[in-house]
Design a protein around this nucleic acid. Structure first.
Lengths: 207, 207
DNA sequence: TCTCAATAGAGTTCACATTCACAAAGTATT
DNA sequence: AATACTTTGTGAATGTGAACTCTATTGAGA
């Protein structure tokens, strides 16, 4: 019996809506209709309305939705109304690219620490972050960091995750191409770039 | 009335299965049961069997599935039984990380060209690939490249896609955080790292 | 004030996906 | 050969999400 639970697929779409809304807000637009928003984001208007109806946002017929109000509402649901500090583990090619990625900020994320095992990298400073030895992971709890990004090679992913869980991390974004075992209370989202690419040929017309 | 079409969700899982199977194959294992495979990949055994049943792979009761046969079958369905040449557009942080990413090869992808607009980067050689000016995109058709990875900033993503479509590209893996308009015959898969991270706090227990 | 166009929100139906349960088919053991 | 065990394949039940329709509400303009 679920009471106020929002569908997972809706939750998956909310950050996309949020990104579009933030962009419109910067352009000082006040309202938007589900139809216009659908055009911008490439989805269906009724999908948007249905998603919003889950959490009782009321738009105005004939006008649309108030953008500022909507942003506030979505942020609250996604728990993005507070700043989340995140730790990056693995400062290789991918790790450094993530560190330089500009878009985490708009959702209220702050990558506050970075770790690696390579002595040559430890101590280096990238974007105001000093790369630390992974043995320092245990300090995360004290530093109020409860979110981590794993960008290490697949053979070290599980042990990294174990260390993170021990350090009190509650959510992991995993870029390693493997399944990671964690306690139920910890949420893992895995992004496997290669598997997404591997789906493409199936959908491509025969050349 | 669909005859042999495989469910999209199944297609999404096939590359994951394939990765696990390739790994097992390297260890010279001959057979595997759906249960053991489920343990490794973190999914349900009946899900695996159901997925396989769609394309009529027959395992052996009491033994499991023949790994080599299964690999061949999955590769064929995903059209990964031939090498696909891919082009990378955008040699920034993310682009270079993708270029260095080792796992595309196992699925039979070959990143055969890289492009950028920055004169300082053009001509540089990375991993045997010489970075070219984007004006060269039009040569892709001649070079038999029909697959591209977009890793440019969001404000140049649409124009990049337009150029790629004009150059005969049939499939695009898009890392830019925006919706891209393309003709129906072209397939786009978008990976938006930040939106995935943005889902995490919702699922994390209150600290 | 009345009418009309635009648009939200709720309800319905349909399509797809997951889960489950079990018979059938194979292997191993005694 | 008989029995116990393992594992597949699949039909049915259940759950979930998408697509579409319809009605009510609002704003604007005659």
């Amino acid at each position: 019996m679920r009471y106020h639970k929002i569908a997972d697929e809706t939750i998956r779409r909310l950050p996309i809506y949020l990104r579009g809304l933030l962009s419109l807000s910067e352009q000082n637009q006040a309202n938007i209709s589900s139809k216009d928003m659908a055009d911008i984001l490439g989805v269906n208007p009724w999908q948007i309305r249905k998603d919003f109806s889950y959490f009782g946002v009321f738009g105005t017929a004939g006008v649309g939705y108030n953008i500022k109000k909507l942003i506030k509402q979505i942020k609250k649901i996604l728990k993005l109304d507070v700043v989340h500090k995140a730790a990056l583990v693995g400062a290789g090619n991918l790790g450094l690219a993530i560190l330089a990625y500009p878009d985490f900020g708009i959702y209220g994320f702050d990558i506050a620490a970075a770790f690696d095992t390579n002595p040559k990298k430890i101590g280096r400073k990238v974007k105001n972050i000093t790369i630390e030895d992974v043995s320092n992971l245990s300090t995360l709890k004290k530093r109020k960091i409860n979110l981590a990004i794993i960008a290490v090679s697949w053979d070290k992913a599980q042990q990294t995750a174990d260390a993170l869980v021990k350090a009190g991390i509650k959510g992991i974004l995993n870029f390693s191409p493997c399944y990671i075992r964690v306690p139920k209370k910890v949420k893992v989202i895995t992004i496997d770039i290669a598997t997404d690419l591997a789906r493409l040929p199936y959908y491509m017309p025969a050349s």
